[in-house]
């Protein structure tokens, strides 16, 4: 078993946090995980990516090449981080920000990630957690229980309910998309 993920977007969207939470959920499932990231020298803004590898065998090389799943949360990230996708990759895009992705024939699923966060939680801030639910729902890379636990352990006190709702909304987006497909 081996899953590879690249979460890409703009600094401040919480994608590195999302990557950490996904890796923590994988450990809770008893698997191994490595999370890495890259960002520019800017304090905020600029494109940002987090990568996660989940496996039941030791993981050495920590970067992702040819991502199994690419999450794209900005057009700039779409232009920058889809180049090494293959036909086997799954590209999940946020419909609010991304129009075109040239991902070498990868399957694309366009989801209302940020709009859903605003609708369900009142703030676009929760888009990263909605995205996590969608990614987990579409890939089955971690169990729902472990993911919820990892989210709740990582988020600020007092935001648990909103995060729980965001995660559930993400899983719903995934099942709706699978229903359509």
């Amino acid at each position: 078993m081996r899953h590879t993920f690249r979460f890409s977007g703009t600094g401040g969207q919480g994608l590195i946090t999302a990557g950490i939470i996904l890796a923590e959920a994988a450990l809770l499932d008893g698997n191994l995980a490595v999370q890495s990231q890259s960002y520019g020298p800017e304090a905020r803004g600029g494109s940002s990516k987090a990568e996660v590898i989940i496996s039941d065998e030791p993981i050495h090389f920590s970067r992702v090449t040819c991502p199994g799943t690419l999450l794209v949360m900005s057009q700039e990230a779409a232009d920058k981080f889809a180049h090494d996708c293959t036909e086997e990759s799954l590209v999940i895009t946020d419909s609010l920000f991304v129009s075109e992705v040239n991902a070498n024939g990868a399957k694309r699923i366009d989801l209302d990630i940020t709009r859903t966060a605003t609708r369900v939680c009142g703030k676009p801030l929760f888009a990263n957690i909605v995205a996590l639910g969608a990614v987990a729902g579409l890939t089955n890379c971690v169990s729902e229980k472990s993911l919820e636990r990892a989210v709740l352990e990582r988020v600020p006190k007092g935001t648990e309910d909103a995060n729980r709702k965001a995660l559930a909304a993400g899983f719903s987006l995934a099942s709706e998309a699978q229903g359509k497909a």
């Binding site: 950490i20 191994l32 890495s36």
Partner: peptide, 9 residues
């Protein structure tokens, strides 16, 4: 930076 910033078990 690889080892400093990566997270693992």
């Amino acid at each position: 930076e690889i080892v400093g910033h990566m997270r693992e078990r």
